[in-house]
Nucleic acid binder design. Structure first.
Length: 466
RNA sequence: UCCCCGGUAGCUCAGUUGGUUAGAGCGGGUGACUGUUAAUCACUAGGUCGUUGGUUCGAGUCCAUCCCGGGGAGCCA
């Protein structure tokens, strides 16, 4: 008999009276001297475990069933029945309980049927997926990723796998990890004493990507609507609840589009994804609302209904200035919004996600389209209550001469970016795109406070365990 | 990188102005009890109090140092 997922045994898909085999890991075992044990088994297929009722008549009851502890892997066969007890609809009356793998030392098995701190669970990242919370996070993460691909597919976007290894050393998005096969203890040198990267694997200096944007623009100016969804690396020494050195980023890029088209896309996209998660993960979301963040479901529902607030950067500054709030950093036109400013806007003033558009030229990247008066560029940030910046994007500078000037002004080497300039030389069009941090999105959806708890094995400064 | 907080049993924590033998709950073991629900009750095992040094008659407690963790800020997604 082939095994079925616990999800199927619990969702009514299988008729009661059917003989089934399930396989998974034990959460708890409770004995009843009335002649049976209750074994709570999960397999990750759904939030709830199934209760296996193991009668004392089983041949291995005393030497096996009664020795089962949390974490053992089991294969159980029996009849699916309506539960005679409270707390669950279905359960399995076992005729066979087989322990696949014992827990060597139950005394030190880290995952107990109790609340653990997330800090502790980070130290056992290989075992934490066995907990309620991380099972739920994992399923939500999967459903979110799937919804993202589905949204783009349904809207005629193509998924472009931009390279992870890149030679562009100044994409303007922070410090990069070096990729090299040179012998660190014995580096080849040029005549001038510099490291001779011509002897390196690629014959030049290379890094891990900090963004697929520049690469994807080429595909945008050919396939019109495209996106990346892949790993991204930042070697910044950021120690916060919302930064990772390795994370996943979604970057759509749309042709024949301006900043408002981009804001429309961001809003429609986020609403679609939130809706999908609420529909496909009701149990997991209910858990987050109950145990992690009380507003987890309510705020997503509210967000799906209401139109996003949109305002100019200049307006945002005015709101902050006349707010009467005491800020550590005074809001001033020309300065970037501080975390405290973003929080005020999203959490207090609007109590909603806010799209801020058209930032001062000086504080934004070279590729963003400059306004006629040169004071601002067509950039936008989507700010969400609780986490701040979730999306950052812009309309790209599509005019060759303007882009060239801006690069020169920033002392950038036009030669390195000649291929990027080609895109403006041959059939340029207005286009725009944004970057969305996947883990930040999961953080927002689940209400999990720390981004290290929504990725399987977090990489942060000073830590790359597992 | 900067600021703040913390490190005591497998886990979550308590530990008074420095003072005898460092405690509880959960988890483990043993037993009792029960269609049980993070079951309940009794008994039991389990600790180099993060490291190194200092102050003191005496340090889990005070000081310094380093290591590790967490939160906040900056950078950003």
């Amino acid at each position: 008999m082939s095994a079925v997922s616990i999800k199927k045994t619990l969702n009514g898909e299988i008729q009661t009276g059917t003989r089934v085999t399930i396989q998974g890991w034990v959460r708890t075992r409770r004995d009843s001297k009335a002649g049976f044990s209750f074994i709570s088994v999960h397999d990750g297929s759904c939030f709830d475990p199934i209760q296996v009722v193991a009668p004392a008549e089983l041949v291995n009851y005393e030497d096996t069933v009664q020795k089962i502890t949390s974490g053992c892997s089991v294969i159980c066969t029996g009849t699916l029945v309506e539960s005679q007890g409270r707390g669950q609809t279905f359960e399995i009356q076992a005729t066979d309980v087989h322990v696949c793998g014992w827990v060597d030392d139950p005394d030190t098995y880290p995952i107990q049927p109790k609340q653990h701190s997330f800090e502790f669970l980070r130290d056992v990242a290989h075992l934490r997926p066995r907990t309620n919370t991380f099972g739920a996070v994992t399923r939500v993460r999967h459903v979110t990723a799937t919804a993202i691909h589905r949204y783009f597919h349904e809207h005629d976007f193509f998924w472009i796998n931009t390279p992870i290894i890149t030679a562009a050393d100044a994409e303007g998005a922070g410090d990069m990890f070096r990729v090299s096969t040179l012998d660190l203890a014995n580096l080849p040198r040029t005549d001038t004493g510099a490291i001779d990267f011509s002897q390196d694997f690629f014959g030049r200096e290379t890094f891990l990507t900090v963004s697929g944007q520049l690469n994807i623009e080429g595909y945008c100016l050919a396939l019109s609507n495209v996106y990346t969804f892949g790993p991204t690396f930042r070697a910044e020494n950021s120690n916060t609840t919302r930064h990772l050195a390795e994370f996943w980023m979604i970057e759509p890029e749309i042709a024949f589009a301006d900043l408002d088209d981009l804001a429309d896309l961001a809003e429609d996209f986020l609403k679609y994804v939130f809706k999908a998660v609420l529909e496909e993960c009701p149990k997991d979301m209910a858990f987050f609302a109950q145990r992690i963040e009380p507003t987890a479901i309510a705020r997503l529902e509210a967000l799906i209904e209401a139109p996003f607030v949109r305002l100019e950067y200049a307006e945002a500054i005015e709101i902050l200035k006349s707010s009467g709030q005491k800020f550590e950093f005074k809001p001033e036109w020309g300065l970037d919004l501080q975390t405290e400013h973003e929080r005020y806007l999203t959490e207090k003033h609007f109590s909603a996600p806010v799209v801020v558009k058209n930032y001062p030229t000086e504080i934004k990247a070279f590729y963003m389209r400059i306004a006629d008066d040169r004071k601002t560029v067509a950039a936008l940030d989507v700010l969400a209550p609780g986490i701040g910046e979730i999306i950052g994007g812009s309309q790209r500078e599509e005019r060759l001469d303007v882009l060239y000037q801006r690069m020169a002004k920033q002392g950038m080497d036009a030669e390195t970016y000649s291929w990027y300039l080609d895109l403006r030389r041959y059939g340029t069009v207005p286009h725009a795109g944004f970057g969305l941090g996947f883990e930040r999105l999961i953080t927002y959806i689940t209400g999990m406070a720390n981004i290290r708890d929504v990725i399987p094995y977090p990489r942060v400064p000073g830590r790359a365990n597992f």
